[in-house]
Nucleic acid binder design. Sequence first.
DNA 1: GTTCTAGAAC
DNA 2: GTTCTAGAAC
Length: 792
Amino acid sequence: MFHCIDFLQVFHTPQLYTRNNPKSDPTPIIQPSRRVSDLNMDMDLDQTSHRNKDGKPVLVILVGPPGSGKSTFCEEVMRSSSRSWLRVCQDTIGNGKAGNKAQCLSSAARGLKDGKSVFIDRCNLNREQRSDFVKLQGETQIDMHAVVLDLPAKLCISRSVKRSGHEGNLQGGKAAAVVNRMLQNKELPKLSEGFNRITFCQSESNVKDAIDTYQKLGPLDNLSHGCFGQKNPDSKIQSSIIKFLKKVEVPVDTASKENSIRDSNSKTPGQSDPPCKDMEKIPSAHDNSKSGSKEIEGQADKSSGSCHNQVSLDDTPTLAFPSISTSDFQFNHDKAADIIVEKVTEYANKVGNARLVLVDLTHKSKILSLVKSKAAEKNIDTQKFFTHVGDITRLYSTGGLRCNVIANAANWRLKPGGGGVNASIFDAAGPELESATKDKVKTLSPGNAVAVPLPSSSPLFIREGVTHVIHVLGPNMNPQRPNCLNNDYEKGCKVLQDAYASLFEGFASIVKNQVQQNENIGKKSLELQDQSEQHSRNHSPNTDQKSKRDADHGLVKSKKYKGSQDAFDTTFTGSRDEKVDSEHKRSDGSTRKAWGSWAQALHQIAMHPEKHKDGLLEISEDIIVLNDMYPKAQKHVLILARTRGLDCLSDVHNEHLLVLKRLHAVGLKWAEKFLSENASLVFRLGYHSVPSMRQLHLHVISQDFESKHLKNKKHWNSFNTAFFRDSVDIIDEVSNHGKATLKDDDKLLSMELRCHRCKSAHPNIPRLKSHISSCQSPFPAFLLENGRLVGA
DNA sequence: GTTCTAGAAC
DNA sequence: GTTCTAGAAC
């Protein structure tokens, strides 16, 4: 609230503070009613007004994924601006072809030096990408702006797909994957990064207004500093600002535009007060003295920081669940807390970057505090699991916590009523949940869970962004209720464990399928619109109701179209064994692998390459290239797919063909690079049938196997038996059969050691290594075919 | 994936 | 005694 009050005070003193007293209160030196434009003539007073004669060059960093309209934005502004603008576009900076960041930086620096204003037309979606450009500020007296084109993913994707001739050369399905990937890692700019002004555009009309603002920015004008256009859903403050703005004359075009942007954002129907209360318009730092602006930036930083977290977390799949069986079913709290923590630990790594949140209504909740302390003892990652006090049916609207899936402590008949969580969830979700549940399954036995996709017409969907409700039934210790276990905690604990396991598995499956849905977007442009809604639904809490409805139709459509994978409506029933069975049935016979903590390294790199930048050879939106940490040959690199949910070959399906081809192409490129340095090498590109490390990675390995890290039979056989699947063969198989065949027989890894050239057998690794260091035999015919080996 | 180490193989 | 493997732990 402090910020808001502060803001109003400042705003009531339109744009004018004394120049010589930067740290003073924002005392107006003119009457608020006086028009700002009147003061433009008065340089002494108007040093900081909206337009003044100190007009500085401005560096505008555009922020947005492909298809968000960055280039159009620049072109539109430049078409009718009286300023001299330079557009620095990474897609064209290399003589019309794509260039690199360094080229952009030097071009921008040159432009600024020449007194031009500059647009940085590249995605700039995270802080790191922006930081070098922001640093240009240090060299010259310029204004540093960001314009965020934060439009629905659907729109960006469809635009990207349409323009195959676009400078960025993104086309077809790849575009969808790239846009989704980029949006998952987006980091909205903050004033604290060094910006004087940030304009957020969340609709096409916002973009139009921003274009208008920059078009009208003459060579001698400056724009007000601060954040503009970011949705501020606090309607109370909103309306007072609007009221205020209506009262006061706002003479400059830009200011009224900003007002209208804000206004339209505030009108989102059915949305009440999400959490970014502090993300308020930071009024111009009207004196340029360091101390003065710092103070305001400090505020901005704090507020935008909290807001940014929230915004970025909106992307994270989240399951909110109540404590099962501890309320009406009277299960012992301490035992239940142990089970929750145990199961959370078990599943935290299986749900990717998703979050699990235990919810209860009050701060006094015993189970909440028990779980909290037990989780802390176990050092459970608080990003992945935490507790939350609030109403599970109003997590987003009143708590600001966005959860796409909530669990219901159901009864065996799966009927509404009965009080507690069950009653309130059925109540909040409307009759839609009841009928969707009924369509799915009639009853539930203890220890089981069933996931029900929530129809888009459900109020819980519309208001809270909940896409699925997972009904869970735990053990009952209450003699007043059915199936009482009569204090048999041995059985009770087992049932409760099963219940949570079933719940988390259900959630993991939803997450996985949603990721797949997103990736499928790219595959068939027919499906593009509807499926991408699914993504933007996860992405933006403000997606309107109509598009949500479309999204569900899209699911139905896509399922019919594909005719196979039961993507969303998977039921999770039965004991643990049954669950494995159902897993089998669903996904072509393979069970999902549990990855140990040590196996996550590549996955972490793929998800957050910026944290591991130093060790990486190449980073792009969809792949990463790095040296194998323990190379098994002179040259051994990994080409890592960044696709979420694509852990290994068994996850690969039709829709990943482009990914496979991309990995192969990048692998070849690196092999060729190494060959240019050492023509005697020979490379093989392929995958381990069952990799030890999570996240699909292609090995590019030279066939000398000259490495101190190649130490045992498993090492050798993993590259020199059928366990190693050549990339070319995998591409063929996926093209022809929609999946890869795996040679995951353990026997392959313990086979006798044979030279990969002459096939002679050797008793142990040292002897084998000694042999291969001098074996000159040609490679077997099989390897010479079909481009399996790559030589100079 | 690696490291560590007991014990088999030489 | 040294070398090497293989299984457990991480």
